[in-house]
Amino acid sequence: MRFPEILAAALLALVPAAHAGANAVRADIAARLAAAHPGVAPSDYALGAAAFDAERRAQLEANTPAPEAAGILAEGKRLWTRKFKNGRSLAQCFPNGGRRIAAAYPQLEAKSKRIVTLETAVNQCLRTHGEPILEAADAAAMGAILAYVRSLAEGQKIAVRVATPLAEERFEQGRRLYFTRMGQQNYACASCHLQSAGKYFGNTALPAAPGAASRWPYVREGRAVTLQAQVRECLERMGAAPFPAGSDELSQVDYFLTALATGQTIRPNAWRPR
């Protein structure tokens, strides 16, 4: 564990005693949310706070498409199709120029036994072709690229299945991180996005975990905010040192959240207020 100091005070009150497997975890979470919010369709979890808040939903609809999304997508497309020094491009690293690939990420790479997120895949391509890699947390470059690639999969169903013992292990690592209380505030991600999902923190309804992998990135103040960036923001709010951008821990949380959302529709680049 990279940050034992922030996990030292961990309490696993929300965690089932034994890992029951990804399918059972998904079913259990879906059942708990359905019982707590019988009026909310699971497909609406992708709306984030707006799934639980009619006023916010009206604001979201009034800001669809997000006013600043077009500029981000244009920049993302430019970077995606930009020729490397060797004449290749990011688009040429992926099947179909990157169309519909986002639905299959993150992936478990058999050789390295690590989770490969979209960020990792972009950097693997850059490295292969001798280009400088991008910071995973760089909203202007990596954020714009991922906004564009995710837009090429808009409307696709997320297809991240946990099909092998190693995949189960990675899912479990992500789940444990998600349910582990950490930081000065002693929250787990699950404290807000499962235990208190749909309740109001101040004037904002808390989004439910199964929607997180559908809606990223969202567009806030002219920037694409990726799933990893969201998790890092939450960790800061929890009073914990965020896992580094591009770290295995964030990849595992990404994998857990995306597997949780398998079958849901990708709905990226939506407006979100500060």
Partner: peptide, 18 residues
Amino acid sequence: PARMVPDTVKPPYGRHRI
């Protein structure tokens, strides 16, 4: 607060020196 309500989400204001 967890000493009274184990699964509470209330922060431990004293124990964590908030």
